[in-house]
Nucleic acid binder design. Structure first.
Lengths: 189, 189
DNA sequence: CCATTTGCCTAAAGGCATTAGGCAAATGCA
DNA sequence: TGCATTTGCCTAATGCCTTTAGGCAAATGG
């Protein structure tokens, strides 16, 4: 019989596509096998288990997101950088809901260390270079930005803002204005 | 044989406890049946299906959270109210991680309408009475506060802030300071 | 060209969700 | 109190998912 040419990378890629189609928590080793037209057990030569699959998809999503973030930050500073970076998260979540959910998957410490998580933190810090914050406020601000981006996107995707005025796009824009204003006037302790 | 005295309410309660013990997504009809020392099929007289169980747990968690929020807001205003309300979310998530996760579970529209979701939005609006915002900025601010609270708690629970200085408690306090400052100086469009 | 490795397969066991059908306990009404 | 009905939990069965073991054929490399 002809071999399918599976690799962990191709499986993670296929898993990511599957996640966008059916949702990250519907990503199952069985469904992935069907997608590659292969028997389920075959995947276990390339994947440790189902958790391993999910982890690989998460790592892939984090890398993609970090790449987009880096591209968005290039040549920008201040509010411009802030908005561009924030939009990367929001747009990625809209284009790739399954991958975005994967990026929020809780990784075990080992995978987390090998992930693009560090790049994300670095980029957020880079945005803050356009504002006048010193440690430890810079760290507090990094955490706050991460919270707003993640929180907003996650509530928006959950449909939290969809059935009421004003429209979500407008809130997003005004929240970015507000964050910019806040970072320019970060309160003293 | 002696009857177990199951009801949808007792099952939701047991499910909530189970969620706190093993995590919301490990809450399964089977595990719940074991907890009540009853056969799995028996639960289907009281629950439509597994989704129904999760929905009931989510509704229960949302009610509990709204009750705590209401208690925290009573007699407070301004930053005091803001911080008390924010701490309700954070503390609830720490005490009841499974229930908190349940509260974030995506409900179908019908369940969402019957949920305490509306009370949550009302309470957040009540906090903003202590600040000088008019529509539509008030709505933007409601959405932003929701995003920060949810985002921070969720990143913190995911371990995002645990292995780095400064300590998460300090960031949380400073972020609440920052939000208070921002609401007092909300930027004009 | 053949030995070894590698990749996908069949088979099987165990878990969860869900439905159908049955019997006994509880309930309600004369 | 006595009996009919309803209700609650049970057994049985199906189907899908995960994971492991063991086998055969394709690819590889000396």
């Amino acid at each position: 019989m002809v071999r399918a040419g599976l690799t962990p990378e191709r499986l993670a890629q296929g898993g990511a596509e599957l996640a966008d189609e059916v949702g990250f928590d519907q990503v199952t080793v069985s469904a992935l096998a069907r997608r590659f037209d292969v028997k389920v057990a075959s995947l276990y030569s390339h994947l440790k288990n189902s958790q391993d699959l999910r982890t690989r998809i998460a790592l892939l999503a984090l890398e993609e997101l970090a790449d987009r973030g880096a591209a968005a930050l290039a040549g920008r500073a201040g509010k411009d950088a802030l908005a561009a970076f924030a939009n990367v998260y929001r747009d990625y979540a809209r284009e790739h809901p399954g991958r975005y959910a994967a990026a929020r998957f809780r990784l075990d410490p080992e995978a987390a260390a090998a992930s693009a998580g560090g790049r994300h933190a670095q980029m957020t810090r880079a945005i803050l270079r356009g504002y006048d914050l010193t440690e430890p406020d810079q760290t507090h601000a990094v955490r706050m930005l991460g919270s707003v981006f993640h929180g907003y996107v996650s509530l928006e995707m959950g449909g939290g803002f969809s059935h009421s005025a004003p429209d979500s796009q407008e809130s997003w824009a005004r929240i970015l204005d507000a964050l910019d204003a806040l970072l320019r006037n970060w309160p003293a302790p």
